[in-house]
Simulated scan of single mutants.
Amino acid sequence: MDETTKTPNRTPADEALTDLILSLFRVNNLTLTWGDRLVAPLGLTSARWQILGAIVAAERPQPVAWLARDLGANRQNVQRIVNDLAKEGLVRFEPNPHHRRAQLVVLTDKGQQTYDAAIRLYNPRVNTLAEGLPIEDLETAGRVMKALRKKFEAEENAEEQS
């Protein structure tokens, strides 16, 4: 960024973070488009694939609200997608012994097979994407993303409590 486009009262760190955030917006959009194309043959979208992944990653069945929290997503959007996945037989709902109304979301055999097929498509593609990117840079980027996520979550929690 040249001197004429800098915003007054911003530090170099502010400028660097702004550049990073703008890049993240663009990379996020490109990643979602890439993912949509990758899993389209399986009848999935990036959003559906993400939710299947969150279900797989969870240590035990979770209600939609918890899946949404883990994804950093809107609960209503996750509920809509989970309902669609249930209609397609990829997930099912089970009673939640801790909450009568918040049913647990469970992957079906068909859902597991679909998720596994997505991973089989993903692995060679991610290997290609990783080529030429130093592992140290990837690890640093991951740490920065996790730190930013924590800061955004803390800010969101503070706003909810005020």
Rank of each mutant, 00 (worst) to 15 (best):
N127D: 14
L32E: 13
K151R: 15
N127L: 13
L44T: 07
N9K: 10
A141N: 08
G142T: 06
S162G: 15
T11K: 06
L138Q: 11
A40R: 15
R26E: 14
Q161I: 01
R75L: 00
N96I: 05
N96D: 07
E59T: 12
L38R: 06
E131A: 11
G35W: 01
L138N: 05
V56S: 02
S162A: 07
I135L: 14
G53E: 11
L129N: 04
S46W: 15
E139I: 11
D70P: 00
L107C: 06
A40D: 09
A58P: 05
L52N: 10
A47K: 14
A117Y: 04
V78I: 10
F25Q: 09
D36I: 00
T33D: 14
E153Q: 14
N9H: 13
G132A: 02
E15C: 00
L107Q: 10
N96K: 03
P61F: 03
N96A: 03
V82I: 10
E59N: 12
F25T: 09
L138K: 09
E88W: 03
V39P: 01
A141S: 07
L85A: 06
T108Y: 01
A40S: 13
L138Y: 00
T33W: 01
E156Y: 13
R37M: 07
E155T: 09
N157K: 12
I81R: 08
R149P: 00
E131H: 08
V106R: 05
